[in-house]
Simulated assay, not measured.
Amino acid sequence: MIETRESISEYVVLIGIITQHQDDKQSEEYLDELEFLTLTAGGKTLKRFVQKLDKPNPKTFLGSGKLDDVKTYIDNNDIGTAIFDDELSPAQLRNIERILNCKVLDRTNLILDIFANRAQTSSAKAQVELAQYQYLLPRLTKMWTHLDKQKGGIGMRGPGETEIETDRRIIRDKISLLKKKLQSIDRQMSVQRKNRGKLIRVALVGYTNVGKSTLMNVVSKSDVFAENKLFATLDTTVRKVVIKNIPFLMTDTVGFIRKLPTQLVESFKSTLDEVREADLLLHVVDISHPNFEDHIASVNNILGEINSVDKPTIMIFNKIDAYTTKIIEEDDLVTEKTKEYYSLDDWRKTWISDIGKKSIFISAIEKSNLDEFREKVYASVRELHIQRFPYNDFLYFE
């Protein structure tokens, strides 16, 4: 069998740093996530490079010695792409690409590329294209001098890269046209939301790849695309759900991530409006992920940016079927019982106990505790419905 271009992985190296604001453990976690992003984009990581710095080098991000190590490995192993875990300035990007003589991407560019590959509808495509052009605009100098090296692959999907398209005036015109197009889409979506009638709106939010779409499929008996990759869902999906005697609308939204590019937060305004206008949030968390608390904080930060952090919320701790914990032997009197040794019962006794009835542990894929999930959602939706429509008593007779 002859391998096609699509079946061959693009080999990459990952590069991160350890600073006073990001210790070695955090750096490793971020690179784990960057490797997952790379896999989602179609690449295969061969090696990671990490350097301890007080702050990134303003010219080359890494120190000259470490950058030489990266170059040697790239040359000796025929690597085509180097991906940095932080956003690079236009100057850093130009300098690093000149030294390494290969394609250089940063985390922002990688995420934009994944979004470009995943976008299906006209709305999602326009939102991603706008974010890409906003990212591209200050980097046009680099694009002019390296057009001959652009042969596709990770980071090269989306807007074309011909010389005329990289002219600043043309790019600004494209950004202006895309903004107008998205304003029109925003108006259409706003009308759609108003036409959905007097129904309570529930939005699924959470970090990417926590199982929102799987939960949506189970609860609404629909077939929303779900996959064990980052950003499997970009387009907002709305389904009518009925629990007992109360109908409501459930929305599956794009997943969040640490260091989410500001261009995407802005360009996906119409998608995030579904969250802003929701009456109830179901914050889905992957309890099996060792850094799920950081994921919660990241999601809350973005909810804060869109003025939605104070909405009524139920915390859905998903993937209990995949949860594992380290075991301390009975005769081990030295090892401290840190979070990595917590059982699910231990977690229930932590800060999670403070939110009490506003939390639940489930497995969407195994359909565990879904009856309790439905009861909690029903109670919250019913309470909101009574507040909004106090005279519709007939709805509540069972």
Rank of each mutant, 00 (worst) to 15 (best):
Lys149Thr: 13
Ile328Met: 10
Asp75Pro: 01
Thr237Ala: 11
Ser298Phe: 01
Cys102His: 03
Val13Asp: 04
Ser267His: 04
Arg118Glu: 11
Leu384Gln: 07
Ser123Glu: 14
Gln120Met: 11
Gly197Asn: 10
Phe36His: 12
Ala126Lys: 07
Ile15Lys: 00
Thr60Gly: 09
Ser308Thr: 07
Phe397Ile: 09
Leu136Thr: 04
Ile8Ala: 13
Lys319Gln: 05
Phe231Asp: 02
Ile185Cys: 04
Leu147Tyr: 11
Val242Ile: 13
Lys71Leu: 10
Lys174Gln: 14
Leu37Ile: 04
Val224Thr: 10
Ser27Pro: 08
Asn245Arg: 14
Thr236Lys: 03
Glu266Thr: 12
Thr338Cys: 06
Thr4Ile: 05
Met250Asn: 08
Glu383Gln: 14
Leu140Asn: 07
Lys269Glu: 12
Leu62Asn: 04
Met189Asp: 10
Arg48Val: 05
Glu375Tyr: 08
Leu199Trp: 03
Met250Pro: 06
Glu366Asp: 14
Asp393Pro: 03
Ile175Val: 13
Asp294Ile: 07
Ile316Gln: 01
Gly43Pro: 02
Gln134Glu: 15
Asn301Glu: 14
His295Gln: 15
Asn228Gln: 12
Met143Asp: 05
Leu264Ala: 05
Ala379Cys: 09
Gln263Trp: 00
Asp354Lys: 14
Lys55Gly: 06
Ile306Arg: 03
Pro138Ala: 10
Ser267Met: 06
Val284Lys: 01
Thr19Met: 07
Met156Asp: 14
Ala322Pro: 00
Asn392Thr: 15
Leu281Ile: 08
Thr81Pro: 05
Glu227Met: 05
Lys194Ser: 14
Lys357Leu: 06
Glu10Lys: 08
Ala131Asp: 09
Asp86Pro: 01
Phe248Ser: 04
Asn77Tyr: 09
Glu129Cys: 02
Arg187Lys: 15
Lys44Arg: 15
Trp347Asp: 01
Asn117Leu: 11
Asp345Trp: 05
Lys349Ile: 01
Gly63Leu: 03
Ile386Met: 15
Ile175Met: 10
Thr121Lys: 09
Arg382Gly: 02
Phe292Asn: 06
Gln92Thr: 07
Arg172Tyr: 10
Asp173Arg: 13
Thr166Arg: 10
Phe397His: 11
Thr141Ser: 14
Ile257Lys: 03
Glu274Gly: 04
Ile243Ala: 08
Arg118Tyr: 03
Leu93Cys: 04
Thr166Asn: 15
Leu62Pro: 00
Asp75Ala: 12
Lys212Phe: 03
Asn318Val: 00
Met250Asp: 06
His289Thr: 07
Val202Ala: 02
Asn217Ala: 05
Gly160His: 09
Asp78Ile: 05
Val128Pro: 03
Arg118Trp: 01
Leu249Cys: 09
His146Met: 07
Phe389Glu: 08
Ala91Leu: 10
Gln150Glu: 12
Arg201Asp: 07
Ala226His: 04
Ile287Gly: 00
Asp286Cys: 03
Arg169Asn: 12
Thr45Gly: 07
Ser220His: 05
Ile114Arg: 02
Glu329Cys: 06
Lys59Gln: 13
Asp345Lys: 13
